[in-house]
Design a protein around this nucleic acid. Sequence first.
RNA 1: GCCCGGAUGGCGGAAUGGCAGACGCAGAGGGCUUAAACCCCUCGGCCCUUCGGGGCAUGCGGGUUCGAGUCCCGCUCCGGGCACCA
Length: 830
Amino acid sequence: MSTYTDADDGYPAATFDPHAMQERWLPVWDEIAPFRSGATDDDRPTKYVLDMFPYPSGDLHMGHAEAYALGDVLARYWVQRGFNVLHPIGWDAFGLPAENAAIKRGVDPAAWTYENIATQRASMRRYACSFDWDRTLNTCDPEYYHWNQWFFLQMYERGLAYRKASNVNWCPNCQTVLANEQVVDGRCERCDTPVTKRKLTQWYFRITEYADRLLDDMDQLVGKWPDKVLTMQRNWIGRSEGAEVEFAISGREEPVTVYTTRPDTLYGATFFVVAADSDLAAELAAGTPAEEEFAAYTERVRATSDIDRLATDRPKTGVFLHRHATNPVNGEQIPVYASDYVLADYGTGAIMAVPAHDQRDLDFARAFDLPVRAVVQSEDDPVETGVATADDGPHINSGPLDGLGTAAAIERITDVLAERGTGRAAVNYRLRDWLISRQRYWGTPIPIIHCESCGEVPVPLSDLPVRLPGSSGLDLKPKGTSPLGAAAGWAEVSCPQCGRPARRDPDTMDTFVDSSWYFLRYLNPRKDDGPFDEDQARRWMPVDQYVGGVTHAILHLLYSRFFTKVLHDMGMVDFTEPFTRLLNQGMVVMEGSAMSKSRGNLVRLSDELAEHGVDAIRLSMVFAGPPEDDIDWADVSPGSSNKFLARAWRLAAGVSSEPGVDPTAGDRSVRTTAHRLIDEASQAIEVYRFNVAVAKVMELVNAARKAIDTGPGPADPAVREAVEAVAILLSLFAPYTAEDMWARLGHGPSVARAGWPEVDPALLVRDEVTCVVQVAGKVKARLTVSPDISADELEALALADESVLRALDGRPVVRAIVRPPKLVNLVPGA
RNA sequence: GCCCGGAUGGCGGAAUGGCAGACGCAGAGGGCUUAAACCCCUCGGCCCUUCGGGGCAUGCGGGUUCGAGUCCCGCUCCGGGCACCA
């Protein structure tokens, strides 16, 4: 451990000892709890600053240290600004790692989880996070997941929670199903195992019902959330506008509807494709000569992993089903194929193929030697080039559409189809319903009872929570079915409706359900007659500032927005978006590579804290760069942060005036510098430029040092004013150092509640400014002038300057741009 | 393939269209010291210089402007998102 001794530097002997300061102030803060937010008589205006809560997988790591340092800057800033800041913390405590630890080491998932929570909580306290410790929550407590179950039943009642059988993402390693959002590049988000498909009956939340609102309400977030996140959400929802068109199929009573974004190319449809894994394909194949070939083909498709399916240059395959579809506009008979390039769960699972203007259809047409007919004029011939064309028009070979551009043709054909009753305008989404059931133990039990005679029966609200049974005696090893199904005495119940023997649903909920509403639970974490207090929600919500990693740009944020809208529709909240402003911090990396758990956490936070102390790490995290950028720890030197902190801290010993001395009696030039820097730092914080704010504090420290050593000296009131400002500003970044300085300056704790230094606007007005004089756009001279100098005066002054004259070299000035008091640009003639 | 970002000294990074490189790291020089560390001060984009200064500089090429790191057009490279979504 290093200390920063200054015994011989001419200042009073003292040692800056970060660890001693930590020991000194922690108990004091515990005592005075400066960040408690729940007092009923608190009349400060409110602000809700929320950090994404951690998963308790072990102790805190470097990523947490960055995130919580950044959130703390904002929370502490608003406290200093006089707000009652709600800055809570809790634990996202359900999930697979607890179970995996249980399987690997035979520990109880609950015990493992609560132990880690205790560890993290202690680390957060030491890290000086400005949390309100009265409001913690754990999602694995029955008092919390009770309300997950309550929400589930509310959703169920509203038709927003339902069960269906479909081909779902399956992780063979985790032995559980995954939501679409948890499949990344065909692999399991958690364990990186290639995901396969299984036909299973699962629970879903009907998030697609909210697709339009999730999209439209983003208007409220523009400029307040990172554009990147909004774009990602828009892409994910993937709204597309087009039309549905009905095709009659030979040998089938009902017509088959297709979805297309290009109904204008209907005359160019030369074949028809249904998704190989759809029920429709099986139905159409049955009883035809293709039946056998089709069966073999679907078998092959099923065996193909998602990874292989993702390869976009995969050759097109398929089976002719010995049937024909009738084009509704021209009566043309076109062959029907089954292929895996059409997705069963998008649109209607069937398409009209227009090979001239769709690359995938063209690829298929070439593979199966099918005709290609261009219906939009283009210089290029898709048959020759192998590239589908995408020109705007005019249309050809298209009857009533001939000569029209794309937009007009779409409008026209949609009308025609609507008139005939064979089609209509339609909207589709990439977004799928949210699959929430998981075949694992450590999660919220789904509150449904399956009865042979009554079917799905919701657990009565009065019976909630459905508690998880203890893990002892249960086999938690993943085996594809829920461990809870084998929990003797738990799974078997009597039906709430008919009283006959029935079984509990053995699945647990996706843990993203837990995190979709936790920000509301913080308002009254101990409330036992409802999920949250609606009055408190009116007082605090929506969250003013959310801070967290961009890894949750889609999943968690989309689900939380969905939940909020459902709550709005239930009349429980009066807002439609939960998070007003969002800050995504970057990652902490080491020499370019991520410090994930799988890579063994290249740098350990506990080691860094032991070596440099809390303040130096916090300050390094904030000063390293803009918060949204990644930090390469190899570029960071926490030692130099301590150097700076020690330098700041020593300022306190350089102040000899008494606390409360009138600053207006102090040196004016010291004051103007200090007030300007305080103002600049404040502005930087409000726009998340924390690194710049720290730079301003550094400048303030340099200015104060100079004022003490070679300026008006230690007794000047302006020096006290500046040094006190250093302590207060520093309290956002380095709370221990700031508190210690504050005490040395003669004040009681806590500097965290000292109040932000007020900037005197009169001191921001400069009495002289530097004016730049350019000749032909290049700086040739600098003049010191009064800020309210007139343009004429300034120009005359510039023209009289010696180096300006030299640069002009006798040439006449043909134009003079004069912007008093900052700039003069003289443009000489040729 | 489509959609977003980004590129500034040896390094991290600053700059409402108006002094490019704030602040810091690493470096050099000096002070303090028996010495080192710590601390304090000074210097610092590159090239040339008769030491007055001059030239070139924000990925590359154009443009707008009195003036461009900043705005516009066209590239290159890097990062991210989506991707057989009809």
